[in-house]
Amino acid sequence: MSGFLVASAASLSTSPAELIVMVVDFLLLSIRACSGVLGLRLTSRDSRILTSATVFFVALFIVLVVVRFKSLG
């Protein structure tokens, strides 16, 4: 666990965009998964927007990773 924390802290300064997008992704996924329990009454339109946003940010994260691989690999 400490290895992960050290590694992620060292990477934070070099790739904040990926971390931020990852956090946003997790937030969206959590909202989507827990909407029922949280009492959020999502309409079908809300659900489609949420799904589209989640897919967009996941794709953005993959693109950022690929760009980082190409530039540093």
């Binding site: 590694a7 992620s8 990477s11 070099t14 790739s15 971390l19 990773v65 691989f69 540093l72």
Partner: peptide
């Protein structure tokens, strides 16, 4: 992907 990119760089 997150671990590969961030933790295993």
């Amino acid at each position: 992907l997150g671990w590969l990119s961030l933790g295993a760089s």
